[in-house]
Design a protein around this nucleic acid. Structure first.
Length: 851
RNA sequence: GCCGGAAUGGCGGAACCGGUAGACGCAGCGGACUCAAAAUCCGCCGGUGGCGACACCAUGAGAGUUCGAGUCUCUCUUCCGGCACCA
């Protein structure tokens, strides 16, 4: 055995061993309990970043752990290969997205393999392969025929200079990222998936997910946003025609306090009223400027303008002015709201600003009036006042009575409203799954029949930033109607990449299947037993996948009974790093932390920073690693220098998986040092003469750590599993000679460490003759006999403050413990001359004397 | 703005259930080895006071519940994630 730890050689050998054995291949075996462990697949952006290393190490630790526990484990890997970055790279380098993407995949695959992840590469898939996206198209046509996919208009960001649709990410402070032009909203026809048909089910089934973090379930619940209220109609006239302006409210009890109506700029009333009103037309126009992001809309100054139209109150018939409000969203509810300034904060501010009447109609904790400034109590529930005929009714009774009265007039009914909206999947972009629709002048939108799938995406185009290049490709767009055979145009929009990632987990179960989306192998492997990914996916990706799982069960008939795709979910925290910039050139230029020298004060705070080339830098705080801030830490440098095991060990040891991980170069060194220490220890052990002695005290500590580590790995707190390995080595190093406890401890240590650092433990396991393949060794369990103790230590407190400790026999009774506690000299100092009022004894832990 | 989190030494973190706050590691300081450096090994390492035994303070801030609170409740602050076309 070599005396120096050489990670490169050890890792090459171990990886060759696994490759020659096919160690990572998974085969269905109904006789064995399966464990499907899946980490979110990466976008092939070029090279791995630290978030990937962290994500896949977590998955691999669990994979290897469950394998040692005797499960039939599957851990696959694939590529989320469609998307915007490939188009940007294509524009920058004049290379087709397909080539850029496949080159990246090849490189990143080698990186993943060099990290020693136990991945079954025979199941690899890439969403940009026709063999994969064909089934996106297949499922889409099924949903389309069922009405679960449909066409309507949707709002997009429009860059008027480039004449192109922008992603939210491409809108910087309301302007197009390339042109700097003010972005406009534009309504265009799009295809939507009817996820709202599953809203009830997606909400209720959150209760069937005990293996999900509460915070994620809560976020999903709030996102789906079920609210029960009343849909209320306010009649109005436009010209000589009678119409009804519908609103939805959860506060129908405040109906009698409605003093204005507010509609979205896109609302038909606003459009009609602005025809003969240039000022209003200008305001509506202004509202349509700017981007579509809700976060921006929620923070803009609330503005409005009267339409000049009045609606009639459905109970009193009083005239109520109709306003256009820039804060009313067309996409939510009816695109209109009733304004009740007295009991809604936003309406209150709006009424003050535009001098609209404020009419209190609810008795709130502060009284019957609502003097400025606004107080949160004004919005609380209470009995109705100034609301004849509903005076004196509490909330629910008022809502019931009002809903009943409105229903009689056909001007209202109780309604459940969802915040969740249908999922718009059309993208006016090239690098995505073609939407399989043909537009026929005679037959309308015709889904492409199965025998013509897949609709293949031409792979040699290079986008230029001015819209979708497919539009300019007649060979693609000109086709025949599948229904009538006459000339027709192919749809050129592609699908949202979230479609690709909403079902890949099931496809991994069915490699090579080209006759169907899925086959019966999905019945064996699904659901995913453990899913691991970034907390940033807590809502959209996970919600879409839950929706797709249900759609797949319905359309394929497979996986009956597997409604939820992910039984257990681990949301890892993000990997953060410091970022630095210089604005010497007038523009912010970001400098990678690897090229920065930092001066800190005694408390560790950054005082100043300089680039390696001497330029003074501004510290911009800690944040997610991103290209835009150039603060990514390249894991390859880490692997090259220290090896995969150190990279893996560091990411597990540095913090618990759900926390954010703040990158620190210095701490990596400690992980490497630990692996080296094990190596050296094992080397010395292999050459030593061993006695048969047992060190009872060290053995107790080893098994105590083992017990804790076994618990910690199950609760997925891997940082303390790594600590336990260090503590065991520390304990072993205290033994004077090489004995039976050393040998037992080493065997436990290597197995405990093997999921985290598989290469070095694989090597040492064989070298020390413990066995042939540590991957197949059983996970160690603590020996109850080793954990037995004759005497235990109890802490003694006086009034909750630590004053001493006592050693008592394990079986000591309460009286004896009290006696012993009281006789402790330091304790006596604090008890002397006072009455002991109460004695709290926590068995095995402490005694608290209350004086 | 709305929804969800987080906050413990110079730093990452530990403390499962309310029961010894700071395990384990990093950085730092002192020492051994060395011609020297690296590596390695030994010791110290929250703050204040004290020669010391020890005492007091301390888990973002403020209150509360409890024999006992980092942990539970309320209010606040700061930071992080998401907000539907980044993935």
């Amino acid at each position: 055995m070599q005396d120096a730890y050489d990670p490169a050689a050890v890792e090459r050998d171990a990886q060759q061993f696994w490759a020659s054995r096919g160690s990572f291949r998974s085969v269905e075996n109904p006789a064995k309990r399966k464990f499907y462990c899946l980490s979110m697949f990466p976008y092939p952006s070029g090279k791995l970043h630290m978030g990937h290393v962290r994500n896949y190490t977590i998955g691999d630790v669990l994979t290897r752990y469950y394998r040692m526990r005797g499960f039939n484990v599957l851990q696959p890997m694939g590529w989320d290969a469609f998307g915007l970055p490939a188009e940007n790279a294509a524009m920058a380098n004049k290379v087709p997205p397909a080539k850029w993407t496949r080159d990246n995949i090849a490189y990143m695959k080698r990186q993943l393999q060099s990290l020693g992840f136990a991945l079954d590469w025979q199941r690899e898939l890439a969403t940009c392969d026709a063999s994969y996206y064909k089934w996106n198209q297949w499922l889409f046509t099924r949903l389309f025929r069922k009405g679960l996919a449909y066409k309507k208009t949707g709002v997009v960001n429009w860059d008027p200079v480039d004449q192109t649709v922008l992603a939210n990410e491409q809108v910087i402070e309301g302007r197009g990222w390339r042109t700097g032009a003010l972005v406009e909203k534009r309504e265009i026809p799009m295809y939507f998936l009817r996820i709202t048909a599953y809203a009830d089910e997606l909400l209720a089934a959150l209760n069937d997910l005990p293996g999900w973090p509460e915070q994620v379930k809560l976020m999903q619940k709030n996102w789906i946003g079920k609210s029960e209220g009343v849909r209320i109609g306010f009649p109005y006239q436009l010209g000589s025609q009678n119409h009804v302006l519908w609103v939805f409210t959860t506060r129908a009890d405040t109906l009698m306090g409605a003093t204005f109506m507010a509609v979205a700029a896109e609302h038909p009333i606003a459009l009609a009223a602005s025809k003969n009103n240039p000022r209003l037309a200008a305001f509506v126009d202004e509202c349509r400027k700017g981007a579509v992001m809700e976060a921006d809309l929620a923070q803009i100054e609330k503005k409005g303008m009267p339409t000049g139209l009045d609606a009639f109150h459905p109970v009193t018939n009083e005239k109520i002015p109709v306003w256009v409000g820039n804060y009313v969203l067309m996409g939510y509810g009816e695109g209109a709201v009733m304004g009740v300034p007295a009991h809604d904060e936003r309406d209150y501010a709006f009424a003050l600003k535009y001098h609209l009447p404020i009419k209190p109609v609810i008795r709130h904790p502060l009284g019957d009036t609502v003097p400025a400034p606004w107080k949160p109590e004004y919005a609380e529930y209470g009995v109705c006042i100034n609301s004849a005929p509903y005076d004196g009714l509490p909330y629910q009774e008022a809502v019931d009575a009002i809903a009943a009265d409105l229903k009689a007039k056909s001007l209202g009914e109780k309604q459940v409203q969802w915040r969740l909206r249908d999922w718009g999947i059309s993208r006016q972009r090239y690098w995505g799954t073609p939407i399989p629709i043909v537009h026929c002048p005679a037959c309308g939108d015709v889904p492409v029949p199965d025998d013509q799938l897949p609709v293949r995406l031409p792979e040699d185009l290079v986008p230029d930033g001015t819209g979708n290049p497919l539009n300019k490709l007649a060979a693609y767009t000109d086709t025949k109607c599948p229904a009538c055979g006459k000339p027709a145009k192919r749809e050129t929009d592609t699908m949202d990449t979230f479609v690709d990632s909403s079902w890949y987990f099931a496809r991994f179960a069915c490699p090579g299947q080209d006759k169907a989306m899925l086959d019966e192998r999905a019945n064996y492997w699904m659901a995913v037993d453990q899913y691991i990914g970034g907390i940033e996916h807590a809502i959209l990706h996970l919600l879409y996948s839950r929706f797709f799982q249900r759609a797949m069960v319905e359309q394929t008939g497979l996986m009956q009974g597997v409604k939820e795709p992910f039984a257990n979910l681990l949301t890892q925290g993000m990997v953060l790093a410091e970022s630095y910039y210089t604005d010497e050139s007038g523009r912010r230029e970001w400098v990678n932390p690897a090229d920065v020298d930092v001066v800190r004060d005694a408390k560790g705070n950054i005082v100043s920073a300089k680039a390696k080339d001497g330029r003074a830098l501004v510290y911009d705080g800690i944040g997610t690693m991103s290209k835009s801030k150039n603060n990514g830490v390249d894991p390859q440098a880490l692997i090259d220098r220290y090896g995969a095991d150190t990279a893996r060990f560091y990411t597990m040891f540095a913090s618990p998986p759900t926390n954010t991980l703040e990158w620190s170069d210095e701490s990596v060194e400690g992980s490497y040092r630990f692996l080296r220490r094990i190596w050296t220890f094992a080397y010395r052990f292999s050459n030593a003469t061993k006695s048969k002695d047992v060190d009872k005290e060290v053995r107790f500590r080893i098994h105590t750590e083992l017990k804790q580590a076994g618990y910690d790995i199950q609760r997925q707190q891997f940082n303390t599993v790594a600590s336990a390995c260090m503590k065991i080595l520390n304990a072993l190093e205290e033994i004077e000679d090489w004995n039976a406890t050393t040998e037992e401890g080493l065997s436990i240590l290597l197995r405990l460490l093997s999921p985290i650092a598989p290469h070095v433990t694989h090597h040492l396991w064989r070298e020390l003759g413990f066995g042939e393949d540590i991957m197949s060794a059983p996970w160690p369990d603590p020996d109850p006999a080793a954990l037995e103790q004759d005497e235990i230590e109890l802490v003694v407190q006086v009034n909750g403050k630590l004053r001493g400790s006592i050693r008592v026999p394990k079986a000591a009774d309460r009286g004896a413990i009290e006696q012993l506690a009281l006789s402790n000299p330091n304790v006596q100092k604090f008890v002397a001359g006072q009455n002991v009022k109460k004695v709290v004894v926590v068995p095995g832990r402490l005694v608290n004397l209350v004086v």
